[in-house]
Design a protein around this nucleic acid. Structure first.
Lengths: 204, 204
DNA sequence: GTCTATATCATGATAGAC
DNA sequence: GTCTATCATGATATAGAC
């Protein structure tokens, strides 16, 4: 996490990221971003023409960052179970380091999905390849048969949702005890891996 | 789904619900709510003193509605596996009928969690009771041992997340084919039930 | 590039007639 | 209860000096 606070533009990006993540596009105020960056509002419009453009820059950066190394893992030659374990580890690791991402992305997604769509398309992400891959492993008898889409949905859900619903998890499960909450998140990866394997590995 | 469009107050509540759900608290405009209700802004302030109060009324209504019959199911005398199946069915059924709820709740939750907290407290919801119940079934050997919190997190995640991330699921998985999307959601309940049972029921 | 000052506009809220 | 007209605020955005 390098802090490049040299140039004004970087200071703005850093400040804007924090404010947008905390308040969302609608809730964020240009004045607040300017204050956080230690400059004035006029400079924001000098560097980025409008709030909309500034937001898009931040959103794209976060999405690209959050986006999967998944395809890379999936396209490797490891057995399917290993790949699944690696994906889960990679996801939880990312989320523990950047727990704000899911909530932010989902919030802005329901506001205006077009930004994400552009990025998904740019990345050329093709889920069908992944599903074909899973289906192949099923046909080989490595894991039980089930619709690959649902298997993917189950895994992704268990990884992301507890982070996306962080305020709820924190309060309902742990009465806002942050230490207990962090411990819970740290346990997620092994728990999910065992859960998935118990569910899909053929048992004799 | 009764449409009681008689009184002005009900028209406002109905209109406000739609607008708040679509745009969120920050994004919603009093003018838009007034237009949707077929009245003018002044009347909004006549019935509800401020935007804040109007929002709180809507939010509380939705939360109360979305809130679990779970405790009721859990407190029954069915075996644990049956209860889990009933909870999954109840959840998915609710979410198919009201798919907007998760996104809305999570968005406003990250904005200001205090509203939900009041309601959770008012409901006297005690997750520990549920966890104790699960633990008991584990000690009886009905299902395998795992931290009850994580089991609950896994189940809730698989139920809610695909609905909360609806725009993403719709686009990435189905290229916005709504028919295919609905079919996918309809399959969720049986898929999740089988997945969970395969994961936790002791196998010989 | 950076600042101050200001234009422009949209929104939540209110006053007061009917 | 419902309306029109208006206010007060705060937001984005721009002009222009340095």
């Amino acid at each position: 996490m390098e802090t490049k606070k040299d140039s004004t533009e970087d200071k703005i990006l850093e400040a804007a990221k924090n404010v947008f993540v905390a308040k969302g596009m609608e809730g964020a105020r240009m004045q607040e971003i300017a204050d956080a960056a230690g400059i004035n509002k006029a400079l924001l419009h000098y560097y980025f023409r409008s709030k909309e453009r500034l937001f898009e820059a931040i959103f794209a950066e976060i999405i690209k960052f959050a986006f999967p190394k998944i395809t890379r893992i999936v396209q490797s030659d490891e057995p399917i179970v290993t790949k699944i374990e690696q994906v889960i580890d990679a996801y939880i690791d990312l989320l523990i380091k950047h727990p704000f991402i899911p909530g932010f992305v989902m919030k802005e997604l329901s506001r205006d999905p077009s930004g994400l769509f552009k990025i998904v398309i740019k990345f050329g992400l093709n889920p069908q390849t992944i599903f074909d891959h899973i289906q192949l492993a099923m046909d080989r008898g490595e894991i039980i048969q089930m619709p690959p889409r649902h298997l993917a949905a189950n895994i992704i859900s268990m990884c992301i949702f507890p982070f996306a619903a962080r305020p709820l998890v924190s309060f309902v499960l742990f009465k806002d005890d942050q230490v207990a909450l962090e411990a819970f998140y740290a346990e997620r990866a092994p728990v999910i891996k065992k859960f998935v394997i118990d569910a899909i590995v053929i048992k004799n």
